[in-house]
Amino acid sequence: MVENRPFLTFLTHAFLILGFLVVALPVYVAIMASTHDVSTLMSGPVPLLPGSHFIENYSTILTSAAAAHGLPNYSHMALNSLIMALTITAGKIAISILSAFAIVYFRFPFRLLAFWIIFVTLMLPVEVRIMPTYKIVADLGMLNSWAGLTVPLIASATATFLFRQFFMTVPDELLEAARVDGAGPMKFFRDILLPLSRTNIGALCVILFIYGWVQYLWPLLVTTDPGYYTLMMGMKRMVTAQDGVIEWQLVMAGSVLAMLPPILVVIFMQRLFIRGLTETEK
């Protein structure tokens, strides 16, 4: 039985509200700033009430009118980021689930060693191995290409580990029953393991999509062609591209729009996301 302690309940809610305000305040300021004109934003502190330029600012950032302000093509960069995020998400899940399937259900020499080598790569993120990875991509002629943007980021030790842990909880009776019915390894994988992994895949889709969407350092290194610029790169260029006064209202409008896809992914997949992170038995 849970004890009813009003003071602890009040303290818990107070910390939750404080944390929400700390996180939400910059977002609120960005939304309010995106509704004003540049003269208002440059004349003093950022207003905390809505302005009258909401439609004008957002229509400018989404259309070719942004070029008149010295800004890169926002819609094209958003499409590049979407393609990159979806490719990384699909690639990471496909490779990780097949790797975990092989490690758990196949017996081959150095199977556990292969898993631990994969797991140790968690200590070597992209930022640590950035130079050798860039050298390989450059030698393979993958600069300024979709392959160069996505392939080096596809491998995922975290997803492989999560799928492996889940597969180890699947009862052996399912595998035996599949064998009795004459199902081969891939049919067992396709008809039994994939449906059971639906919540895990949903949770990883949310995490990996956001991971791919917010990439900045790697696209900055491997792309010099504006046709491959991603949204995170574009946001930086929106601040430095103009001569003279920075169009902060358009920068803020672009920042607000850049937050929408990850938010929508979390909203529409929150049930699978929560279940995938909390369920331990199927």
Rank of each mutant, 00 (worst) to 15 (best):
G141Q: 01
V137F: 02
L79Y: 06
P6D: 05
P171E: 04
L8Q: 15
A65F: 00
A203P: 05
I130L: 14
L124I: 13
T35L: 09
V137G: 00
E279S: 13
I103S: 08
K135L: 14
N200D: 10
V214Y: 00
V222R: 03
A177V: 04
L21D: 05
L98P: 02
M232T: 15
F15K: 06
P185V: 07
M259R: 01
D181T: 10
N80K: 08
T169N: 10
I95W: 07
F209P: 02
A65S: 13
L124D: 00
I154E: 06
K187I: 12
Q165L: 13
R129N: 13
F119R: 08
A203E: 04
S255M: 12
L149E: 09
F54R: 13
P171F: 00
P47T: 08
L124R: 04
T12D: 07
S81A: 12
S43Y: 04
L257D: 04
P171G: 07
L98Q: 04
A78L: 15
A90F: 12
M238Y: 04
N80C: 02
G70A: 01
L162D: 08
G184Q: 05
I88Q: 11
F20I: 06
E3G: 14
A14K: 02
L98T: 12
V27R: 09
N144W: 08
V256I: 13
V126R: 10
G51A: 11
F110K: 09
S197P: 06
A90Y: 09
S64K: 14
F189R: 01
T169E: 10
P72K: 11
L194K: 02
K236A: 09
I118H: 01
T199R: 05
L11D: 01
T199Y: 07
V245D: 05
T240N: 00
T160L: 02
S81M: 01
D172A: 14
I136L: 15
T150N: 14
F268Q: 01
L208K: 05
D181A: 09
G202H: 03
A67P: 00
E56M: 11
A157W: 03
V29G: 11
K282V: 11
L174Q: 10
E3V: 11
P219G: 02
V22T: 09
P109I: 01
P185I: 04
I103N: 03
A30V: 14
V170A: 00
A78D: 02
Q215Y: 09
A157I: 08
L112V: 05
F106N: 08
V265I: 13
A147W: 12
P262Y: 07
I136A: 14
L175H: 13
P109E: 05
W146D: 06
K282Y: 12
Y134R: 03
I118K: 00
